[in-house]
């Protein structure tokens, strides 16, 4: 029972990562736009969900106590809106500007979460967020299991929708935009529009991931907004296979599995009191995985399925 309940817990978190990874896949995998601030949009979603669903804090901007489903929708909308504001000036420029812009917005969001105490309660975070199914399910295990079913359902829904979208004429345009930065400049306004669309939608998914996280743990704080999250999602997508939605999901499960397994193993091996070192070893190890994948198998575990024949792609 213990193992099973841990497995359910593990899969819920992996699923939450998978939603963010699907968002990054839409941006990077399909459209070739860079987002180095995944955690920023995740954080906006988490805090939005906390405000929409949370109780009325006496010392912070008030919770509205609405249903978590409303929180999920609100998180997507607000994260998407932030992406729109960031993307509008940067997305028509070269990749580098968007990379730097998204990196910057993520840091700003973390700074606000830490320092605007009258709205965010700083490092104390927003707590006591409602957990769906907690009351109805009876036991924490049943509640987590129900949450897992919901997360899996959301992932399936999102994946099927994304699959339909990328196989449509609109999706073919994404690839045209991705394959060639200069050729897509010739597409002009259209290229700009699809880039902005995917950037907003992908960031909306990252926001949804944040909301799912907030209502699962019942607590958000600036500790959840570290750049390591962005890095983890990168690795998940690269390992799983960028350009492949199922690969993004697989990558999230594999990397989250490795991440949790190494914590268990390292904590057992290293003497207590070396917690900082455990965290550091883990990050270095996952960094090595990222670099090794980029070098040795850049297409990932599940490579992108190409609609075009390989020969057609070779012609310069």
């Amino acid at each position: 029972m213990d193992v099973l309940s841990y497995l359910v817990f593990f899969l819920v978190v992996a699923g939450i990562y998978a939603v963010a990874t699907l968002g990054l896949n839409l941006q990077w995998g399909f459209t070739g736009i860079m987002n180095v601030g995944v955690v920023g949009f995740f954080g906006v979603g988490a805090y939005t969900a906390a405000y929409v669903t949370g109780p009325n804090y006496p010392d912070a901007f008030g919770g509205f106590g609405l249903h978590p489903l409303v929180g999920y929708l609100a998180a997507m909308v607000v994260s998407g809106a932030v992406a729109f504001v960031v993307g509008l000036p940067t997305i028509r420029l070269k990749h580098d500007f968007l990379a730097i812009g998204t990196f910057g917005i993520a840091i700003c969001i973390q700074l606000v979460a830490m320092n605007w105490k009258s709205a965010t309660r700083g490092f104390d975070g927003l707590h006591s967020l409602p957990k769906p199914f907690a009351a109805a399910a009876g036991s924490p295990f049943a509640a987590n299991l129900a949450y897992l079913v919901m997360v899996v359902a959301i992932i399936l829904l999102v994946t099927l929708a994304l699959e339909r979208m990328v196989r449509s004429p609109w999706g073919r345009m994404l690839r045209a935009v991705r394959e060639d930065e200069t050729a897509s400049a010739a597409l002009g306004k259209d290229a700009f529009r699809v880039r902005l669309q995917t950037f907003v939608m992908g960031s909306g998914l990252m926001g949804l991931s944040g909301a799912l996280y907030a209502n699962f743990t019942g607590f958000v704080s600036p500790q959840d907004l570290l750049p390591i999250f962005t890095f983890q999602v990168f690795v998940m997508l690269v390992v799983g296979g960028s350009g492949n939605n199922w690969g993004a999901i697989l990558g999230a499960v594999v990397i989250w599995g490795l991440w949790t397994a190494t914590e268990t193993v390292l904590s057992a091996l290293l003497p207590p009191g070396l917690q900082q070192q455990v965290a550091a070893v883990r990050i270095v190890m996952v960094g090595l995985i990222l670099v090794a994948m980029l070098l040795l198998r850049p297409q990932g575990l599940l490579p992108e399925r190409r609609n075009v024949s390989p020969e057609a792609r070779l012609k310069p």
């Binding site: 990379a99 690795v235 690269v238 990050i283 270095v284 960094g287 980029l294």
Partner: peptide, 11 residues
């Protein structure tokens, strides 16, 4: 390259 540099930075 950007992604690899982000990984190198964290490492």
């Amino acid at each position: 390259l950007i992604m690899a540099s982000f990984g190198v930075a964290l490492m």
